[in-house]
């Protein structure tokens, strides 16, 4: 089964990316985590994202486009990246989620990916 691991991070952790003293450790942890996923042969795809202040949110209401600066919801933890993995079941997906850097300081939502409809 495929699962998307959705990594969310608090604002102060996003700030580490820009801090020369903290950035190497921050990126190092992610590189080694994603490396382990790739090495295990379970990677389907995945990306890190620019921080939430770079987000733009779009809605169409009554045919009218509404564009807004910032992420869709103003909450303490924001989406920082995701990875889709192919594993046997939920328990394996939860094990991988627990190993991620954001499990320590933020949270990881685990969602099964909808299978492609049969053609």
């Amino acid at each position: 089964m495929q699962y998307m691991l959705i990594f969310t991070e608090p604002t102060e952790v996003f700030a580490r990316r820009e801090n020369p003293a903290e950035a190497p450790a921050y990126w190092g942890a992610w590189t080694s985590y994603m490396g382990a996923i790739a090495k295990a042969g379970i990677m389907v795809n995945g990306d890190g994202l620019h921080p939430p202040h770079t987000a733009t949110t779009v809605r169409v209401r009554n045919g009218k486009r509404e564009v807004q600066d910032g992420p869709y919801a103003d909450v303490k933890e924001q989406l920082g990246g995701y990875v889709v993995i192919e594993v046997a079941g939920l328990d394996a997906a939860l094990d991988w989620a627990a190993k991620s850097p954001s499990a320590e300081y933020g949270s990881v939502e685990v969602r099964p990916v909808l299978p492609q409809p049969a053609r």
Binding site: M1, Y3, A88, G89, L90, D91, A93, V110, P112
Partner: peptide, 10 residues
């Protein structure tokens, strides 16, 4: 069913 909870108890 949808989240793939294992039916094997490890």
């Amino acid at each position: 069913r949808d989240a793939g909870v294992a039916f094997e108890v490890p």
